[in-house]
Every structure is written in C-alpha cells, then in structure tokens.
Simulated scan of single mutants.
Amino acid sequence: MSATSPRRTPPPRERVVLAQRTGARIVRTRVEVQEQTEVGEAMIRGLVRAQLGLAVRLGLLAVILLCSVPAVLAVFPTFADVTVFGIALPWLVLGLLAYPVLLGTGWVYTRQAERNEQDFTDLVDD
C-alpha cells in the first residue's frame, strides 16, 4: 500500500453455521414416526415384529421345557413311581419346576423387550 491511498477497512466478520446432518435426521425420523408416514409405520412394524418374535420364541421354549418333563417320565416310568415326602415325583417336579421356568422366561422377556425398545429409541433419536 502506498502512503497516499486511503486505508481500507475489512468487511465485518460473518459467522457461517453449517446445518448439522444428525439434527436434521433426528427431527425427520421422529416426525416420520409421529405422523405415521410409510417409513414411520415400517419402523413401528419392525419393533412389533421383533417383540412378537421374542414372545413366540420364549413361549415355545417354556412350553418345550414344561412338556419335556411328562415326556421324560413317560419314557422312564420308574421315575413316575418314586415318591418324595409322600408326593409323587412327577407332581413334585411339575409343581416346583413350573414356577422358576415361568419366572425366568418372564424375566428374560422383560429384559429383551426393553432392549428392543431401547434399540428402537436409539434408531429414532440417532
């Protein structure tokens, strides 16, 4: 610059903010679920399908476990004649085994269903 030229002032600074893609995605997926668009309905159907599959698998597991006891006792009839404290072994096993199996199945279902819902929430909020 020469001494005779007037001094130029730089233009004022402008702050440029880029749109955050993650924020736009959160809003879009939440809106799709709330407004029940095709994508939102597909996401909800996926959650319902996962919960149903979990319930069917655990239900079948409980049925197989509980029905295997009479099947084993039918194959080995000598166990059916055993008594413990005056109670026949089949009644004792079915009476005492059924509750822990059902309780355990319920506990596993609750944990897995909550995990499915958390995964769905993470997908929507991600």
Rank of each mutant, 00 (worst) to 15 (best):
V33Q: 01
L66H: 02
A24K: 14
G86F: 07
T83K: 02
R115A: 15
V48K: 06
L54E: 11
L18C: 09
E114Y: 12
L18V: 13
R115H: 12
L66N: 01
P90A: 01
A55F: 07
F120K: 05
V72N: 01
S2M: 11
D119H: 08
T29V: 15
C67M: 13
R15E: 12
T83P: 01
A3H: 08
R45H: 11
L96T: 10
N116R: 08
F79P: 03
M1G: 15
D125K: 15
E41C: 14
P10R: 11
R30W: 13
T22N: 14
F79D: 00
G106N: 10
Q118D: 10
V31H: 15
T83S: 12
T110E: 09
V72L: 12
P90G: 06
P70T: 00
S5C: 06
R111E: 14
R7E: 14
A62S: 12
L123Y: 14
Q118I: 12
D126V: 09
R30Q: 13
L65F: 02
S68E: 08
R30D: 15
V108Y: 00
P6Y: 10
L65S: 04
R49I: 00
N116Q: 13
L61G: 06
R30T: 10
V93K: 03
V16Q: 08
S5A: 13
V27D: 07
S5G: 07
P90Y: 02
E41N: 15
V72Y: 07
V72G: 07
G23P: 00
P70K: 00
V108H: 08
R28I: 03
Y99F: 10
S68A: 15
S5K: 10
D119Y: 05
F79H: 00
Q118H: 13
R21N: 07
F76V: 10
L94T: 06
P90W: 02
L18H: 11
V33L: 12
V84C: 03
R15D: 13
V31F: 14
P12E: 07
T9D: 13
Q118G: 08
I26L: 13
L54D: 11
R21I: 07
V82K: 05
G53W: 02
D81I: 03
G53N: 01
A71R: 06
L102Y: 03
V56E: 02
V39T: 14
